[in-house]
């Protein structure tokens, strides 16, 4: 049996079939959770953000413009909700995530875990604007055009923001002494 498209499921949901929305949740929850996790870093916060993203999407389904892809719209809500979560955390705890970027790698952690942690630490040192484009481009594999739609910005702005974000990220990792993964590039 062929899988129903997001657009079909949205249509059915708008006609009152809530179970169609369950399928959309199943389909996209992992991606949305990962996007949120890379943005906010905290596992529980990422789960809260994901929950809020789908609830908002459901509540606003009638406002979804079908000329755009459903997942782009979800991404947009996810980025906004992540920013809200970071802002709330900052307000209540006086932290902006950078403080969380402490070097906490245990000796027993393997190389892959340490590398991931260093990357995430570096991400949290970027501004949220820069972090969003890096996450959407490199961790979600989206095109310039898709990112532009999600962030509601011109493609040209996305490119220049991404290029400067990458440069900044490279400098941050260099300062933090992040090992370049020569084994990966050599293979």
């Amino acid at each position: 049996m062929t899988e129903q498209s997001d657009e079909d499921l949205v249509r059915q949901c708008r006609a009152g079939e809530i179970k169609s929305f369950d399928v959309l949740v199943e389909r996209h929850q992992r991606t949305i959770f990962n996007l949120a996790f890379r943005m906010v870093r905290d596992f529980d916060d990422a789960a809260d953000v994901s929950q809020s993203v789908f609830v908002k999407a459901y509540e606003n389904l009638e406002r979804f413009d079908p000329q755009f892809k459903f997942f782009s719209w979800l991404y947009r809500i996810a980025v906004n909700e992540s920013l809200n979560a970071l802002e709330q955390k900052k307000r209540f705890e006086g932290l902006d995530g950078n403080d969380l970027a402490a070097e906490t790698a245990d000796e027993k952690d393997d190389d892959a875990v340490r590398e991931e942690r260093r990357i995430q630490d570096g991400l949290m040192m970027l501004s949220v604007d820069q972090r969003a484009v890096i996450v959407l481009k490199h961790m979600q594999g989206l095109s310039y055009r898709e990112i532009a739609q999600i962030l509601d910005l011109p493609e040209k702005t996305i490119k220049s923001r991404l290029f400067s974000a990458r440069q900044t990220f490279k400098d941050i990792l260099k300062k933090k002494g992040v090992r370049r993964d020569d084994r990966r590039t050599a293979s």
Binding site: A47, H138, R166, D182, R184
Partner: peptide, 15 residues
């Protein structure tokens, strides 16, 4: 190398 490192970060399993 940076692009490769970023793309290689594994996905996290949601709760």
């Amino acid at each position: 190398a940076l692009g490769t490192a970023l793309s290689s970060v594994p996905q996290v399993e949601p709760p």
